[in-house]
Write a protein that binds this DNA or RNA. Structure first.
Length: 261
DNA sequence: ATGGTTGGTAGCCAA
């Protein structure tokens, strides 16, 4: 089974790239972030025509996540529990039947948090990460294959970026951000790409500005975090970097895990 | 639109 995550930075602007990628990469489940669309505006017909079921959790203008799957989800949950006042569409979870049982997959778009001195943005990021930790802890108790995939807006280690000095004061790399990410790992979640490729300098995002792609000035912020039951089934991870070189690309590329379930 | 890019929106904001 192939399970991928991709921040597409606007589904309407990316529909051609998205369809091209679905045809060529053919993930069984795709976790999308930053669809930047309300549910009614999501181009579901084009995607359904390629054999995918579509579940969205959209919002006007920004954020928004989706799950595309070859097999229809048995259950879908929208929104990260833990704060009923949170209006931002950043989380959707689906439960899927496989030949060997069930797999639970979430598509998440963790808050960016910049600028860190903003009275709202960075505290919101940290609070969201704590909610995610509590949610993951509850899910891990199920002892199921469980995958938390998405744009974490977290650079876990200095070698996950081209130049750590540039990121020193950034919400994606501040010590508190990295500590909160480590708390997720310490629950027993495995960072799939780190687990299969310990080589440094693997990136998933390159800014549109200042020729970042051409200079390979990237960061690794899109992660597949696996429960022990999912990690046991992990065979390999692919960063589909060539997609960044397409016409009208997203600034993120897909990251895909291959599993023996 | 500060500029460096892009997307969505009509608030230049968010990334």
């Amino acid at each position: 089974m192939k399970i991928a995550t991709w921040n597409i930075n606007g589904v309407k602007a990316r529909i051609e790239n998205l369809c091209q990628w679905l045809k060529e990469s053919a993930p069984d489940i795709a976790c999308l972030q930053e669809i930047k669309s309300v549910d009614e505006g999501f181009p579901r017909l084009e995607i359904e025509a390629l054999g995918y079921h579509v579940e969205t959790h959209g919002q006007k203008g920004f954020n928004g996540v989706a799950l595309l799957s070859k097999v229809k989800a048995d259950e879908v949950m929208r929104g990260l529990p833990g704060d009923d006042t949170d209006e931002q569409a950043r989380f959707i979870e689906g439960v899927y039947s496989t030949t060997s049982g069930v797999v639970r997959v979430a598509s998440l778009y963790l808050p960016n948090g910049n600028p860190p001195d903003d009275p709202v943005k960075y505290p919101y990021k940290l609070a969201w990460m704590e909610r995610l930790r509590q949610f993951a802890e509850a899910r891990l108790a199920f002892e199921e294959p469980f995958i938390l995939a998405g744009d974490y807006n977290v650079i876990p280690e200095p070698f996950d970026c081209h130049d750590p000095r540039v990121w020193a004061g950034d919400a994606l790399f501040l010590p508190q951000t990295r500590e909160a990410f480590r708390r997720l790992e310490n629950l027993g979640l495995t960072d799939a790409l780190r687990a299969t490729n310990d080589a440094a300098k693997v990136y998933t995002f390159w800014d549109y500005q200042a020729g970042a792609w051409q200079k390979n000035n990237g960061i690794r912020i899109d992660h597949l975090m696996l429960s022990p039951e999912a990690a046991r089934g992990l065979q390999s991870v692919a960063v589909e970097k060539h997609v960044r070189g397409w016409e009208k690309p997203s600034d993120h590329v897909p990251v895909a895990g291959y599993f023996n379930f």
